[in-house]
Design a protein around this nucleic acid. Structure first.
Lengths: 126, 126
DNA sequence: CTGGATCCTGGGGGATACTG
DNA sequence: CAGTATCCCCCAGGATCCAG
């Protein structure tokens, strides 16, 4: 439990902490993390992403991709062909997020059971 | 760019992927990550958290702590004294999230500038 | 058939006031 | 001090339609 840079910056209560939270808000939501994780496996088309991410609506996929593109994490490439083809891939900046994104998803994967148990116990006690 | 367990599970399109996203939704939002990060530095009282996390409302702090408690990440201890005193601390499960949470926050901290530049460029081009 | 824009509703989330 | 209750607004996000 080292006191690292994050905790120092956070405890400073300055605007940097606010900015970090702003970035987290963009990059920490489930769809962004999922999309980044999927694109980490390679370039994908819009429909491929939609098919591979069950439960996401077109609207949310579009919005998520736009946000990631705006933040410089994803490149959008339109191929002028018929039928239209749009490829999405991680930028170098996006690649730097990949390990962390996967780490968080791995954590979730590893602890689903424990979280479930905790919820059951909490709801029973409640 | 290794193909790890997460990408395998995600590509399997089974319910596990959905559950992972559910957990991410709870644990990946900015307030939960921020609270976990702060509690990683040690036990905190309600008001201490509120003071140290600028911008959070009582309502959101309460809701965030409740959610983390329900998921077994945070312990809530009420001391029967006047005035009342309530301490929050990470559970062992919560501690397992700490490194990853800090990693994500460190990533945000390290890449604020790049994200800002990307946004400016994107908005200018748009 | 692909990707994007529009419409509309539920609930996330802030501000404020009140309680044990 | 540590919440709960209430009001209210805004937008996340699903359903649907549009363009090429």
């Amino acid at each position: 439990m080292v006191a690292n840079r994050v905790s120092e910056v956070l405890s400073a209560r300055d605007s940097a902490a606010c900015r970090v939270r702003e970035i987290l808000d963009r990059v920490g939501d489930k769809w962004s993390l999922t999309v980044v994780g999927e694109l980490g496996r390679g370039s994908r088309r819009f429909t491929e992403l939609k098919n591979v991410i069950p439960g996401i609506s077109q609207r949310m996929l579009t919005a998520t991709l736009r946000g990631l593109e705006r933040d410089g994490l994803v490149n959008r490439t339109v191929h002028p062909v018929v039928p239209p083809r749009v490829d999405y891939e991680l930028t170098p900046l996006g690649l730097t997020l990949l390990d962390t994104a996967w780490a968080l998803m791995n954590w979730a994967l590893d602890h689903i059971e424990e979280v479930d148990q905790a919820r059951i116990a909490y709801d029973k006690a409640g």
